[in-house]
Design a protein around this nucleic acid. Structure first.
Lengths: 95, 95
DNA sequence: GTCTCTGGTTTGTGGTACAAACTAGTATGC
DNA sequence: GCATACTAGTTTGTACCACAAACCAGAGAC
């Protein structure tokens, strides 16, 4: 009975992870705009995902402007897949 | 973008609702045993689901022993279905 | 200069999941 | 009958966490 990873099982983070799983990399502004999260909220979710090792953060400057971008790690990808598997088990009664 | 109902989007409650969706009615002891929750935890989840109108509680006596049983309401059933729909949207990028 | 905008992080608060402690009553020794 | 243990739950306390508001720092506009 594989349990639902609490890092993934949270609406905002699930969306973040799904988005990242399709784009190779995305920056803070893009994530905030597409997911409609407040900056503070997004910031703390990303910090959490980073601490958990699910995303890698890259801070750089575009011209003079700071820019933070995120990419899913292999671990993050694995855990996301495992999450969907666990969801399917709950949904379809697998053991 | 239908959001994930927080009453449903919680591991224990999701399991409870899925279990109830398949059995017409189940009592406290059965839920506790099959879902491996502590009594306190199960009690508060059920109280929450009742307050939300997702389950109906029936208290009765079996012989001399008190017995509390739960059944999914129509609302609960609807919301559970909506939850899976919302999950699918996140999973498959529907709008 | 100073005002405002971009790009975030830190802080405070309210809500909540959880288990431990408790309550209420029932069966079981002895 | 009196205590001991078990059934069937509920209440309470704690620790965590999601969220937004407030904050910080630099950049461009005027």
């Amino acid at each position: 009975m594989s349990d639902l990873d609490p890092h993934v099982h949270q609406p905002a983070r699930l969306r973040i992870l799904m988005l990242l799983s399709g784009v190779d990399s995305a920056d803070f502004a893009f994530l905030q705009k597409t997911l409609q999260l407040t900056k503070g909220n997004l910031s703390s979710h990303m910090a959490r995902l980073e601490r958990a090792g699910y995303v890698r953060v890259t801070k750089a400057f575009h011209g003079n402007m700071p820019n933070t971008s995120y990419r899913l790690t292999r671990l993050g990808r694995t855990r996301l897949a495992a999450y969907w598997k666990a969801i399917d088990e709950i949904r379809h009664g697998a053991e």
